[in-house]
Design a protein around this nucleic acid. Structure first.
Length: 474
RNA sequence: GGUCCCAUCGUCUAGAGGCCUAGGACGUGGCCCUCUCAAGGCUAAAACACGGGUUCGAUUCCCGUUGGGACCGCCA
C-alpha cells in the first residue's frame, strides 16, 4: 500500500443499486485499485423506516455482478449506534451541540414562512442557549454550526469551493428517538474507518461544509473530497425511474454484460484520450481524477447498446453459450431443464455473436437452431417460398439427401453446382433456403446455418417448405 | 427564492493560449464488401451558448449575461 488510500461506497438501502450509485461505486473502486488502497462497503441504513434487508441484498448482488469487490465490510450503521451516541454525547458535553425541543410541525411552519418571505429556510437557533429541558418533550440534538467566516472545500474535481458559514444550518445530528442522522454518522464512520478520500455524487457538495465543520468539532483531519458530476436522463433531469430502466439488475436481465456497463459508466465523466473500449486492467491503470470531467452527463442507452454488442463479439462462444442459457429458458426458446449440447451451442453462438447486441437478442436468434418447428414470417414466405423457388428447393433437397458430410465446405460445392446448372446467383438460391430453414430473411451465412442445423433438421425443413408450396397449379 | 456546481457536434467526450480548416465515439445519411443481416472499411452532415475584457493571439484565462443542474428534511 503505497500511500494507504482508503475509500468507501456508502449506499442507503432504500432501493436497488442504480446506475448513478454503480458509477459512484465504480470510481471509488477504480481509485482504490489504482492506488493499491482499500475499498470499503458501508450500508447507511440509519433511516430504519425506509431501509430493508432486501435492498441490501440487491445492492450487494449488483456490485458482485459488476465485479466491484470490496476489501472491508459490508458494515451496517445500525450496528454502530453506540458509537454514534458516544460522539453525540461528547459534542453536547463540549458545548458543540445542544438539545432542541422544537416540534417537527413548528419547524415545518417556520420553514414555509421563511421561504414565503424570501428568507433562508434554516433553523433559527432558538434552542441554542436553553438551560432547562422542556418537560414531556423528547429533544433532538443539533450541531452548533459556526455562524461567521467561511468553510473551504478543496475538491479533487471541482477545485476550491467556498461556503459562507452564515448559510450553514444547525443541523440535527440525533433524532428525538435517539437515532443518529446522516451528517453525523457519515463523519464518524469515515473517521473511524480511516477513509482518506470521500468520492460521491456532487449532489453532496452542499453537505460537505457542514460535514467539514463536524470533523473540526471532533478534532479530526478532514479527508480529501471528489464530487462526481451527476448522470442525467435525456431531458437533462437527474436520472430516475421515469427515464426507464435505472437499476443495474434490470440491465443484467435485459442481457447486458457487466463489462459493457462498467465501460459505459466509466466513460460518463471520465476519458482517456480517444480510447472508447477499456479492459478492467487498463481502467485500473489509467484511472485518475485529472481525467474526470466536471459537467453532468446524459445517459445514452444507444451507446451502451453498441458497447454491449462490442463486448458480446469479444467474448468466447463457450462463455456466451453459458451466459445465454438462462435467457434461452426465459425467452422460451428452450424448455426448463432441456439438454442442449454445449459444444454444439457454442458453434451456433459463434455464428450469431457479431449479430447480437444483447444476450436476449442472442437467445431469440438461437430459436431457429434449437426449436423443432419453424414458423415462416408471412412476407418472407410469400416472397421466397413460391413456384419460382420450388424447383431450386427440390433440387437442393435431392442433392442434400445424398450427402452425409454437412460441412460448410461441402455444402458450398452443392450450392455452386446448382447455381452453375441453372445459371443463377447465390442470392436466388440462398434466400428461399434461408426462409425454409429459419423462417425469416435474416441469418448468418447459409452454409454455416445448414452445418449447425444438421442433416436431419435441414432435410425436414426443406421438405416442409416444398410441401407448403405444393404442386404447380398451372 | 437562497447557496453551490456546470456550459465543445443530438449524446459521451478530446482539447490544459498559437498544434484547431476544432479530433474521436454513439446515433444518422451515402458508398464499399456481400447469399440476407450483421461485423468491418471509407465518407458526409453535425459543436466551441452570448457579451465584455486580458493577450500579438483565445475553445482554452478573468468578469458578466443566459441556460441547465444539485442542495436547502427528525432522507441519505
Amino acid at each position: 500500500m503505497s500511500d494507504n488510500i482508503r475509500v468507501r461506497f456508502a449506499p442507503s438501502p432504500t432501493g436497488f443499486l442504480h446506475i448513478g450509485g454503480a458509477r459512484t461505486a465504480l470510481f471509488n473502486w477504480l481509485y482504490a485499485r489504482h492506488s493499491d488502497g482499500a475499498f470499503i462497503l458501508r450500508i447507511e441504513d440509519t433511516d430504519r423506516t425506509r431501509s430493508t434487508d432486501e435492498y441490501i441484498e440487491a445492492i450487494i448482488e449488483g456490485m458482485e455482478w459488476l465485479g466491484l469487490d470490496w476489501d472491508e465490510g459490508p458494515f451496517r450503521q445500525t450496528d454502530r449506534f453506540d458509537l454514534y451516541r458516544s460522539y453525540v454525547e461528547k459534542l453536547v458535553r463540549e458545548g458543540k451541540a445542544y438539545y432542541c425541543y422544537c416540534s417537527p410541525e413548528e419547524l415545518e411552519d417556520r420553514r414555509r414562512e421563511a421561504i414565503a418571505g424570501g428568507r433562508l429556510p434554516k433553523y433559527d437557533g432558538r434552542c441554542r442557549g436553553l438551560k432547562e429541558p422542556v418537560p414531556g418533550v423528547s429533544p433532538v440534538v443539533r450541531f452548533l454550526m459556526p455562524q461567521a467566516g467561511q468553510t473551504v472545500v478543496d475538491d479533487l474535481i471541482k477545485g476550491k469551493v467556498v461556503f459562507e458559514n452564515a448559510q450553514l444550518d444547525d443541523l440535527i445530528i440525533m433524532r428525538s428517538d435517539g437515532t443518529p442522522t446522516y451528517n453525523l454518522t457519515v463523519v464518524v464512520d469515515d473517521v473511524d474507518m480511516g477513509i482518506t478520500h470521500v468520492i460521491r455524487g456532487d449532489d453532496h457538495l452542499n453537505n460537505t461544509p457542514k460535514q467539514v465543520q463536524i470533523y473540526r468539532a471532533l478534532g479530526y483531519k478532514v479527508p480529501g473530497f471528489a464530487h462526481l458530476p451527476m448522470i442525467l436522463g435525456a431531458d437533462k433531469a437527474r436520472l430516475s425511474k421515469r427515464h426507464g430502466a435505472t437499476s443495474v439488475t434490470a440491465y443484467r436481465e435485459m442481457g447486458y454484460l457487466p463489462e459493457a456497463l462498467i465501460n459505459y459508466l466509466v466513460r460518463l465523466g471520465w476519458s482517456y484520450g480517444d480510447q472508447e473500449i477499456f479492459s478492467r486492467e487498463e481502467l485500473i491503470k489509467y484511472f485518475s481524477f485529472e481525467n474526470v470531467g466536471r459537467a453532468a452527463a446524459v445517459f445514452n442507452p444507444e451507446k451502451l447498446l453498441w458497447l454491449n454488442g462490442q463486448y458480446i463479439m469479444r467474448r468466447s462462444p463457450e462463455e456466451l453459450a453459458d451466459l445465454v442459457m438462462p435467457f434461452l429458458v426465459r425467452e422460451k426458446v428452450a424448455g426448463e431443464g432441456q439438454e442442449i449440447d454445449r459444444v454444439w451451442l457454442s458453434k451456433a453462438v459463434a455464428t450469431l455473436q457479431e449479430r447480437s447486441r444483447t444476450l436476449v437478442e442472442l437467445a431469440q436468434s438461437l430459436r431457429y437452431y434449437i426449436s423443432e418447428e419453424v414458423a415462416y414470417e408471412e412476407k418472407a414466405g410469400v416472397k421466397f417460398l413460391n413456384q419460382k423457388s420450388l424447383p431450386l428447393l427440390s433440387e437442393l433437397r435431392e442433392e442434400l439427401g445424398k450427402m452425409t458430410d454437412f460441412s460448410a465446405a461441402e455444402l458450398e460445392k452443392v450450392f455452386t453446382g446448382i447455381m452453375e446448372r441453372r445459371q443463377i446467383k447465390l442470392g436466388a438460391l440462398a434466400q428461399p433456403v434461408r426462409v425454409a430453414l429459419t423462417g425469416g430473411t435474416v441469418s448468418p451465412g447459409i452454409f454455416e446455418v445448414i452445418e449447425i442445423m444438421g442433416r436431419e433438421k435441414t432435410l425436414k425443413r426443406l421438405d416442409k417448405a416444398i410441401q407448403s408450396i405444393g404442386p404447380d397449379a398451372a
